[in-house]
Amino acid sequence: MNYMKKSSKRVLTGLAVFIMLFHLIPFYILITTSLKPKGDFSSKWVFPSNLNFQNFSDAWVEANLGTSLFNSAIITFFAALLLIIIGSTAAYPLARRQTKLNKFIFTLFIAIMVIPPLTALVPLYQLVVDIGMMNTRTVAVLNNVASFMPLTIFLYSGFIKSTIPKELEEAAKIDGASTLGIFFRIVFPLLKPVTASILIISCVFIWNDFQFAIFFLQDKEVQTFTVALSTFFGENTNNLNFVAAAAIMAMMPMVILFLFLQKYFIRGLASGSVKG
């Protein structure tokens, strides 16, 4: 399939350029919109003659972006950390000890993946109100940990089963190391590739989460940037230039991270979905 004439190659390159341009359209529109002042009714396709960054500084304050981006970062960081520690520890016995109990528990974790989050969210809402954890970052962290746990366990246990040699652990066991010691000192360091994939998948989805956050984080002090942005949009439907500036600032942290770590992002998300 890789042998072609020069002319057909040129056509295909042209096609690739066309695809690129098409995929860049919404970003172009976003940028021109964000740089125009309110009341500028020129076409969205026209690039503004003088750049106006007022929207950005105003939207940053009005949309509560400082606080909300910080909240998103905190929630993502702790959720990912817990997910890695709890998930890898949980996957180890499920991969290594195929007892009846463990097989049942593993199946249970996999079955949970099919439950749509909203089906559990409606009853969970009342539960969270009852225990007084509404509008806390803790509940957002724990809820994200729980919802990514099945995929994390699935990926870790698949990796342990297929690539970590048993002999290593058996040798350590003879030396009298404890199970947890063997796991964290010998097995966990070998899990780096799958840990990287899980970190990337979970961080992208937890960072971008809206569905959980809109249920549990309504207060301005604890809301994530997605909740802040949806509120801001509701208040400014007649000032889209403002919303565009806020949207650009809100998506920037993840875009920058992606451009720097592109290779890992693409590999991580693909391998995660391949197995998931």
């Binding site: 709890i86 016995p93 499920l94 969970l124 746990m149």
Partner: peptide, 27 residues
């Protein structure tokens, strides 16, 4: 029982029980 090492997945199990399984059944 011992060889299941069930205590290692207890935290994960508690998390999904509280946030997914129990609410789902309650639903």
């Amino acid at each position: 029982k011992n060889s299941s090492l069930w205590w290692m997945y207890l935290p994960a199990l508690l998390a999904v029980s509280f946030f997914i399984i129990y609410p789902f059944l309650n639903g």
